Computed example of a mutant assay.
Amino acid sequence: MKIYKLLFFTFLLTALTSCTFTENIYINDNGTGKFSIDVDGSAFMGMAGDQLGSQMGAGAKNDIDSTFTFKQLFAEKKDSIAKLSTEAQKEIKKLENFVVTTKMNAEKKQFLMTIATDFKNVNELQDILQTAGTLQKLEGGSSINPLGSGLGDNNSKLSYTYDGKKFSRKAVINQQKVTEKVKDSAADMSKMIYSSSNYIMKYHFPKKIKKISNPNALFSDDRKSVTIQYSFTDYIENPDKLNFDVEFEK
């Protein structure tokens, strides 16, 4: 199956129905690690999996297990990328090492997608979700952005910091963009679509957590991992609500 066709249906799924988005970060002792976004659209498959499978072809009706990198995709779209500004091309390049894995099974009512990359320092992840929005600038961009139109489009700048003693996740809201979005009638539609979706953060550290600024955080038994859940509406409308700081034991 062509990558474009798979991504087109992925985009429709994440844009038109409730999903669970899970942001995962694994940090090693030396500060390197792995970042991923898991999208679970199985609820949609339970409602329309047979129809979706049929539209994607006879071979896809039973099972899809696909893995590719954005680097592969960009090689196929090099002509469109060359037409973009130098700044936009630099933004897109940040995504080329991301690996996209999609598993869809209409019979089992399952749709799972993971977008993952390794990093040398969490600072590399600054605005990584917003960068995905740059894909919209490509020809047919909406159909090659597997994150859909909501993830990363919350009018904020997101950054992460980690120095071995503390970790911070911080989103700073762009008030000008918020004002512009209020005037956009599509904003109400997006709010309705995502009202039943969830956004979960699961972070895994090499050290035990001494304290965390978020009172709703759930710890693993060894206190090295934390899970925090919000509605996707919070992620879209109040991205700074998801900010938190972590202090580690010595």
Results as ranks from 00 to 15, higher is better:
K94H: 11
M189I: 15
I27F: 09
K5A: 12
Y26A: 08
T32C: 04
Q110H: 05
N155W: 05
S156Q: 05
I81H: 11
N62V: 10
T179R: 07
L158F: 02
F44V: 07
D63M: 15
I37M: 13
D153R: 07
N62I: 09
E107F: 14
K71Q: 13
D234W: 00
G164A: 14
V178A: 08
A15G: 02
D79G: 02
T101L: 09
A132I: 03
P239W: 01
Y194A: 01
S42E: 08
K120E: 13
N105E: 15
Y4F: 11
D240R: 01
N198F: 13
T134M: 04
N155R: 10
E237C: 04
D127H: 06
L151A: 03
I193R: 02
K210H: 08
K170L: 13
N238W: 04
D40S: 05
V99K: 15
K77A: 05
I37N: 00
I81E: 08
V100P: 00
A132H: 04
K202D: 11
A217C: 13
T69R: 06
V99G: 01
A48V: 14
T101H: 14
D153E: 14
A58S: 15
F11N: 10
I128H: 01
T117W: 00
M201R: 02
S18C: 10
Q229C: 13
M104N: 04
T114P: 04
Y194K: 10
I144A: 01
S142P: 00
F244I: 08
A187H: 05
K208E: 15
L112I: 15
N145Q: 06
L158H: 00
T22M: 02
S231A: 11
I3S: 10
F98M: 09
F68K: 07
I115P: 00
P215W: 11
A187W: 08
I92F: 01
E124Y: 06
Y230S: 12
K103D: 06
V99M: 13
V172K: 14
E139N: 06
K207G: 05
D50M: 12
L16Q: 03
V182N: 11
P206V: 13
K94N: 12
T102D: 02
F205W: 01
L138I: 11
D50H: 09
A15R: 00
I228E: 07
